[in-house]
């Protein structure tokens, strides 16, 4: 058989999922929309951010939502040299585990150092940069940035 002309076509598959949040993530998202961050108190007294409905150790229902700070300490991080579509920043940044002030468990978010990997360090302090328009989404925090950057 003769070689055919190979066909190539762009393809996009998109699923417009939405989901209910439950009371804890609902409180977390509501707080983000209002411009602050909440966690919950676990059975052993630790503060977990984002808040969870059930205790990770005892599985008992958790009910106490508490406010934490919007700044904290980088516990661990990973540099993203080439951001992809859907990443929170369009220049090199770090995904970081950040232990917010008043929390005992770190939360994942992005840290913007202006593209400078040398400015990233475990133990550094970072503060949330809030999005101008907030709708109740994790991206209501545009990213974190080194404390005192602005």
């Amino acid at each position: 058989m003769a070689e055919p002309e190979l066909l190539v076509a762009p393809n996009v598959i998109e699923y417009p999922f939405s989901r209910t949040t439950g009371p804890m993530i609902g409180a977390f998202m509501t707080a983000l929309r209002e411009g602050f961050i909440v966690g919950c108190t676990a059975a052993d007294g630790r503060v977990i951010v984002p808040p969870v409905e059930y205790d990770p150790d005892t599985a008992e229902a958790l009910t106490e939502v508490v406010e934490v700070g919007d700044a904290g300490v980088v516990a661990s991080w990973s540099w993203v040299r080439e951001p992809l579509d859907g990443h929170p920043l369009d220049r090199p940044f770090a995904f970081a585990l950040i232990t917010l002030d008043g929390a005992d468990v770190p939360m994942l978010h992005a840290v913007d150092t202006g593209g400078d990997v040398a400015a990233m360090a475990t133990g550094m302090r970072v503060r949330a940069r809030w999005a101008d328009e907030r709708e109740g989404s994790i991206l209501d925090i545009a990213c974190f940035e080194p404390e005192g950057a602005r």
Binding site: L6, L7, V8, A9, P10, N11, V12, I13, E14, Y15, P16, F17, S18, R19, T20, T21, P23, M24, I25, G26, A27, M29, T30, A31, R33, E34, F36, V38, A61, T63, E64, V65, V66, E67, D85, G86, G136, S137
Partner: peptide, 30 residues
């Protein structure tokens, strides 16, 4: 029975649903 901090108690229309779209953008080779 959820206990909310003061700042969340009087919020009008708390968030109950979020959008979580998934998208695959690729090139199909026949």
């Amino acid at each position: 029975d959820i206990v909310l901090p003061d700042r969340l108690r009087d919020v009008a229309e708390p968030v109950r649903r979020i959008r979580t779209p998934a998208r695959l953008d690729y090139v199909f080779m026949a």
